[in-house]
Simulated assay, not measured.
Amino acid sequence: MAGTRLDITRIEAARRAIDPTFLDTPLYRCEALEPVLGCAVSVKLETANPVRSFKGRGTELVASQLAGGAAVCASAGNLGQALAWSGRGRGLDVTVVASRFAPAAKLDRIRALGATLELVDGDFDMARERTVAIARDRGIRLVEDSLDIETCEGAATIGLELVDAAQPFDTVLIALGGGALATGVGHVLKTRAPGVEVVCVQPLGAPAMTRSWRERRVVTTDSTDTIADGVAGRLPIQEVLDDLLLVADDAVLVREESIIAGMRLLLEHAGLVVEPSAALGIAAILEDRDRFAGRHVVTIVCGSNVDVDAYHRWVGTATRR
């Protein structure tokens, strides 16, 4: 697709650089969800891999270009795990900067994978500022999720797998945070399946990228307030927004109670334990059933790194619909 930073030829080549453990993830029709949601629903499951999220697709591309070097990234938890995993197998020295308030399970896993973990007393965007200083002072590679094209084109391989699927679909629902997943998958769909609607979903409590998409300019927020920590950014990146404006058909915001209800539905009807960001697609259907009625919708279940105590608290208090 002309105009974006992404390139379909590079995306196709990315399949050869990414460890097969992250590729060809399950895509299946989940009929048990359909009576509740009022539409045909297929799940693209990006959690059945060593880091339990789609992020490994992008970090595999990054790490493949850094033979024996060092890298630093900011992470809400999933990117850090993925870079640590990809770096460990290639002898890379990986440093991850994260918020002290990130889910403990994600932080523990980053350490277990051998990365150096530095914590800041703030949110993801504060962590991102710290990584800039580390990269400058140490002269190492700064990996910036969504800005670095490898993170977008790695995620875009999900789009290739979707368009290769035998069963046609009408809409793809994509969690929207920094934008790597949405711009990557969106680019492939607009190139190979332009009739498919690309809908991005973000929490009301972390609306910066959605507001930016709607106003066609970068809109920042002072804070975030959502359980979906994986998409809780305040400072959209201009280059990523430029790509998103070309590939997304819509961007919607959903309430916290809908995210929790989506997590419960995925547990009860699909047997999936997911983190809040992975339930955004189901939340979007719950909030606008009429829009999706009679359609075949794919939702990308993008991660399952969730704090167990918090998960039980959320799902245990969710309102049945």
Rank of each mutant, 00 (worst) to 15 (best):
C30A: 14
I174H: 01
E257M: 03
I227E: 01
S304Q: 12
C73A: 12
T319M: 06
G177F: 04
D145G: 15
V274M: 06
Y311V: 04
D222C: 05
A251G: 04
D164L: 09
D24I: 02
R16S: 13
L37C: 09
Q202A: 13
R217Y: 13
L267D: 12
S53Y: 09
Q238R: 06
F22V: 03
C39N: 11
T59D: 06
D288H: 04
I11G: 00
V51C: 02
I300P: 00
C73G: 04
V72Q: 13
H312S: 13
R111N: 02
L142F: 09
R320H: 11
L253M: 06
I285K: 05
L272R: 09
N49S: 11
G294H: 07
V218W: 08
A180I: 04
G87T: 14
L253G: 13
I110Q: 03
R264D: 14
L66E: 15
D123L: 14
C39F: 13
D24W: 05
R291L: 10
V218A: 07
V218L: 09
A63Q: 09
C302H: 02
H187A: 09
G3A: 04
M126V: 13
I237D: 07
D93K: 08
D164E: 15
L272H: 11
L147G: 04
D24L: 02
L66I: 15
D249L: 11
Q167K: 13
F22Q: 02
G177A: 14
H187Q: 10
L162R: 01
L265M: 11
P168F: 07
A133D: 12
R321V: 09
S304N: 10
T151L: 13
E144N: 12
D225F: 08
G91T: 15
W213H: 04
E197G: 11
V219Q: 09
E256I: 14
P203W: 07
V97E: 03
M1G: 15
V198M: 09
L204T: 15
I300E: 00
A63C: 11
F22R: 00
E60Y: 06
E60N: 10
G91N: 15
D225S: 06
A74T: 11
E150P: 12
P276Y: 05
G178A: 08
V188Y: 06
V198E: 05
I140T: 06
R88D: 14
I11S: 01
C30S: 07
G294K: 08
P103T: 15
L265I: 14
G68V: 05
A248M: 01
A74W: 06
V254N: 03
I285A: 04
T210C: 00
E287Q: 06
L79E: 06
V199T: 04
